[in-house]
Computed example of a mutant assay.
Amino acid sequence: MITPPHQPTAVPAAQLLVMPLHAITEIHGETGLRQRLTLELDQLPALDRCVVEDAATWAAQLHAGQRRTREPYVNHLLRVTLRILCYYRVTDPDILITALMHDAVEDQPWTMTGLPTGHGPPPREQAFAVLTTRYGPRVARLVDAVTNPEPEAGVDRVRQYLDHLATALADDPWARVIKLSDFTDNGVGIIHTVGPKVQRSARKYTGAVPILRALLHRPDTPLDPQVKDHIRRQLDLAQRRFTAILAA
């Protein structure tokens, strides 16, 4: 009997540890991704492991009910975090927490603050204060660096996105690491998306590749040379996929 996708079934740890992240997503869903995160966090000291697990639980609560086109939104956050931990070889708990929280202020500021929705602009300043209280100023600063700015009237959204990438990440090497994983999940993973968002995303992201490639290879980007080569190949793959989508 074949188990339907996204059912909470136990997965052998040895099998889960060698599966690509999108394969875990397709076969085992959020349950599998959370199990993989738990397995990977075993390499961290106990206190670090606990605080990252807390962030994973809170992220699931904040984004509960929010979806991407084919999946719960929290799957994206888990993959971004796992990529940093497994493939970028980064175990700094602040970086992992930021990866889990990287969309919270942009998408869920009302949930973070408990303020009522629909009364004025999103309470981003208050959400950053909550984040600072819970995880410290460094996490809040990193989340701020990777959070897209509020749309400006009369400003092209794609241009605003690209300008923000180039400026917000220029002076924050660790924010680049988080954004590279985020972009990889969105860009290389674009083939797992369906509907009109595919074309929109390809148009938006294709201009980001040269910006991110330049930031990746800056000497102060805190990743090993082998990891940088891996990410460069991922950026190249994303660009090939954008080109194919836009040509179609």
Rank of each mutant, 00 (worst) to 15 (best):
Y161Q: 10
P12F: 01
P20M: 09
V74W: 00
T193I: 09
Y205N: 10
T25Q: 13
V52T: 07
I97G: 05
D172P: 03
P149C: 05
F183T: 12
L246T: 10
L246C: 11
T206L: 03
D236V: 14
V90C: 09
L78C: 00
T31P: 06
E26G: 13
D182K: 09
P219K: 07
P151V: 12
T38A: 14
F242H: 11
A104I: 00
P12W: 03
T38E: 12
D224E: 13
L85N: 06
I27R: 15
R79C: 11
D42P: 02
L41A: 07
A238T: 04
M112V: 14
D220F: 07
P8N: 10
D171Q: 14
L21I: 12
V209I: 15
L78K: 02
C50Q: 13
I231M: 07
A46G: 08
V18K: 10
P72W: 04
V11F: 01
D107M: 10
R70N: 13
T91G: 05
R141A: 15
R240C: 08
R70Y: 01
L78M: 07
A140C: 02
A56V: 08
K204N: 10
I178W: 03
L82R: 02
A55N: 08
D171R: 15
T117E: 15
G136C: 03
R232T: 15
D103Q: 03
H6T: 07
I191N: 10
T3K: 12
R213A: 08
I95H: 01
T91I: 11
T91D: 08
N186L: 12
